[in-house]
Amino acid sequence: ELFRYGKVPRAQVAIVTSEDLYHFAEASSDTGPYAEARPDALRHLQHTIKGWHRCLWEEGVWVDFVEEKEVLEGGLKSYRVAILPFPVALGDELAEALREYVAAGGTLISEACPGRADRYGMARLSGMADALMDLFGAEHESLSLCGEWGGQMWSPPRERYEVLPPTELAGDGPYSGHALRASFYVETYRVRGGRPILRCDRGVAGVSNDHGRGRGFLLGTLAGHAVATYDHAQSRAFMLKLVKEAGVLPERCGRLLRRRRVWKDQEAWFLINPLDREVEERVEVEGFRRVEDLLEGKSLPIKGKAVPIALQAFGICCLVLRR
Results as ranks from 00 to 15, higher is better:
Gly60Thr: 08
Ala95Lys: 01
Gly32His: 02
Asp276Ala: 13
His23Gln: 13
Gly60Met: 07
Gly127Ser: 06
Phe238Pro: 10
Ala179Lys: 08
Tyr175Ile: 06
Glu68Arg: 14
Arg290Leu: 14
Arg202Ser: 01
Asp92Met: 05
Cys55Glu: 04
Trp269His: 07
Arg261Gly: 01
Gly214Pro: 06
Thr17Leu: 06
Glu162Tyr: 12
Pro166Asp: 04
Leu295His: 09
Leu94Cys: 01
Val320Leu: 10
Leu45Cys: 07
Ile302Asn: 02
Glu111Ser: 13
Phe270Pro: 01
Arg43Pro: 00
Ile49Cys: 12
Leu249Arg: 15
Gln152Arg: 14
Glu111Trp: 12
Ala226Gly: 03
Leu90Pro: 06
Val13Pro: 01
Pro174Asn: 06
Glu93Ser: 12
Trp62Lys: 02
Phe217Leu: 06
Arg260Asp: 09
Arg160Lys: 11
Val63Asp: 02
Trp52Cys: 05
Asp231Ile: 06
His232Ser: 10
Gly304Ile: 09
Phe184Gln: 00
Glu187Trp: 06
Tyr230Phe: 15
Val186Ala: 00
Leu42Ser: 02
Ala103Ser: 07
Leu94Ala: 06
Ile197Cys: 00
Leu98Asn: 01
Arg236His: 14
Pro85Val: 11
Met153Pro: 00
Leu271Cys: 08
Ala170Thr: 12
Ala123Leu: 15
Pro165Trp: 09
Ile109Thr: 00
Gly194Ile: 01
His44Asn: 09
Glu73Leu: 15
Glu26Lys: 11
Ala97Pro: 00
Tyr79Asn: 05
Ala103Gln: 04
Trp52Thr: 07
Asn273His: 10
Gln234Tyr: 14
His178Arg: 14
Gly247Glu: 01
Val291Trp: 09
Ala89Asp: 08
Ala268Asn: 06
Ser144Ala: 12
Trp149Cys: 00
Trp62Val: 05
Leu108Arg: 03
Gly106Ala: 03
